[in-house]
């Protein structure tokens, strides 16, 4: 049987580098935010890192609520309606 070609994410170091690169972009975005002139419609839009904080918190809240509240309320066996 032919040995299958190794793909990019098959190598753990590639995955690690990918995640590392992603973290670096996040840090760069935090730094770059200070150099951008702000003209938001609301005053809090002009607070540095407002959007970063909101994105992070919103998604953590989203996942936690979905997992611990919604799933607990609505999850049923796959044959529930059968």
């Amino acid at each position: 049987m032919k040995e299958e070609k190794t793909h990019f994410f098959d190598k753990p170091e590639n995955v690690k580098n990918f995640i590392r690169g992603f973290f670096i972009i996040c840090i760069l975005l935090l730094i770059a935010d200070f150099s951008v002139p702000k003209h938001g419609d609301f005053y809090w839009e002009d607070i540095p890192q407002f959007y970063a904080a909101y994105g992070l918190v919103a998604c953590i809240v989203l996942v936690l609520v979905s997992k611990y509240v919604l799933r607990r309320l609505v999850k049923r066996r796959e044959d529930y309606y059968d």
């Binding site: 995640i19 992603f22 973290f23 972009i25 996040c26 975005l29 935090l30 935010d33 890192q49 959007y51 970063a52 904080a53 909101y54 994105g55 992070l56 918190v57 919103a58 998604c59 953590i60 996942v63 936690l64 979905s66 997992k67 919604l70 799933r71 609505v74 999850k75 049923r76 066996r77 796959e78 044959d79 529930y80 309606y81």
Partner: peptide, 27 residues
């Protein structure tokens, strides 16, 4: 910023194992 830090939340939750596993279920 909004998108990358949303992605960061996903990454952190995935790495920490908190992200809800996919389950065969009816919601």
């Amino acid at each position: 910023q909004l998108l990358f830090f949303s992605a960061l939340a996903f990454t952190l939750l995935m790495l920490s194992g908190i992200y809800p596993a996919e389950i065969r279920a009816v919601n």
